[in-house]
Amino acid sequence: MTPIEEPRRLRVATVSLAGCFGCHMSLLDIDERLFPLAERMVFDRSPFTDIKALGPCDVGLVEGGLCNSENVQVLRLFRARCKVLVAVGACAINGGLPAQRNALDIGQILVEVYRNRPGLAADSSMPSDPELPLPLAQVHALHEVVHVDHYLPGCPPSADAIYALLSALIEGRTPHADPAEIRFD
């Protein structure tokens, strides 16, 4: 007997770079529609899974802009391994509110936070372990570093917008943002 052939599942990786995890929460806001969706897709590396190494994927959903060297490395990895790369949320699209630090000198910010801030222990100093990724001088949007295939604006995008995108990709359609669903705030 041949087993009944299941439709191939869409392999989806997700990551939060300089994000707040709010876009991931908005994905979870799909609520019970997550169950039928889960029958047609499977998560690769994602904060929802324990997978550490990113495999070849159909879709990479990236929330957050780029604020440090590790963000850039991970974004390039996602671009290399994901057929379709989606910039999810305001931060991924134009740096978002974290990019308001671009008005300030990053060295000054670190000094203010780790050395001058009231309430710090007397010997507090700037974290300098090589284990830690160095911050970039400015926060950047994803499309300034890699090619992005689709954009889901919003801070965060609505669950309906995320659901529509995933449904389209599962069904092999090109996702089209519905103008009535587009929000930047």
Binding site: I93, N102, A141, V148, Y151, P153, P179, I182, R183, F184
Partner: peptide, 15 residues
């Protein structure tokens, strides 16, 4: 931008 269906910035940001 909404009415034109704008989802992305297309250009590099001048910041």
């Amino acid at each position: 931008a909404y009415a034109l269906g704008m989802a992305d910035m297309h250009f590099e940001l001048l910041a």
